[in-house]
Design a protein around this nucleic acid. Structure first.
Lengths: 152, 152
DNA sequence: CCAAATAGTAGGTGTGAACCCACTATAGGG
DNA sequence: CCCTATAGTGGGTTCACACCTACTATTTGG
């Protein structure tokens, strides 16, 4: 009867599985940091979208982040209550709500970004700088494919 | 007001985030395939552990897979009902239950492995063979670190 | 000017995952 | 022989996430 530990090699031979394990670790650690501030990953994603592209109508946020509009409403609401984003009703089309970053939101995002980089340093510690760059590039390629498939 | 789509670059610049996105995609696709057979990832993990290391006492499975013993019981129960594993009460220590693969279970695992490789080919399509090998190695290193940290 | 489409929102559903506790059966040490 | 530890198990909790539906307010096209 086996008592030794260690994950099954036949699973670790599958990049799919390895990717899902490391992804889970990355997600989990990042989520933990965010949870300390009462936030979830989507809060950070929304802040990042606003920082990168400026104010969005909620519908646009939903499209960009591939998140359900009703879930966007909830996330935005929480961010607004906390003072990290502003919501202003569009005067021309009163159905629309423009969401924009507040200075507090921008500052928060900077902190979250720093946290994420700390998680990253910790997670990718066994990799050289060159390897990290390579990994980043490969993941980008893979992500681009996933994303285009999802969109198309 | 922004209307274009595409994820925020500031997120895609974080390997942590990319890893979590690609990991989610990998996990999701694999889980979908498994779901078609009424299985979840843990079922596959248990089958793989048994195939790689032979029969386990449930406690040992729990340790190896870092899964709660009570959850192991549930997964093993489902596999046993489906005829993929055998459970036999240890004669020497009647508290223990030895779990082993049945031929059906071994066959199932082979199919699941093939599915996983198909998912992998699809997911890693944008990468060359050399890159896939590199990715695999890097992920292994990262995983090894995660695993040792969790264990220690 | 009305019908249809659209933006936002409230509320609810189902699922996987990660835990936790209590309980039974059994074993083993003092 | 009893006390404690251990294996397995059933049951329940909490959480994030992905969805879906119904409804209001508003705009727009015919």
């Amino acid at each position: 009867m086996v008592t030794s530990d260690g994950a099954p090699p036949s699973l670790l031979g599958l990049s799919t599985y390895l990717l899902s394990l490391t992804g889970k670790a990355a997600r989990g650690r990042l989520a933990d940091r965010l949870a300390e501030r009462g936030l979830r990953l989507w809060h950070m994603a929304v802040l990042a979208a606003l920082a990168d592209f400026g104010p969005h109508v909620q519908r646009a946020l939903a499209n960009r982040l591939s998140l359900d509009p009703s879930d966007v409403a909830k996330v935005v609401d929480e961010l607004a209550v906390a003072g990290h984003v502003d919501r202003v009703r569009d005067a021309a089309d009163r159905r629309r709500v423009a969401v924009s970053l507040t200075p507090a939101g921008r500052a928060l995002l900077a902190e979250l970004d720093a946290e994420a980089r700390r998680v990253q340093d910790e997670l990718l510690a066994p990799l050289s700088q060159a390897e990290r760059t390579e990994l980043q590039e490969m993941l980008r390629k893979v992500y681009a494919r996933i994303h285009s498939q999802t969109a198309g």
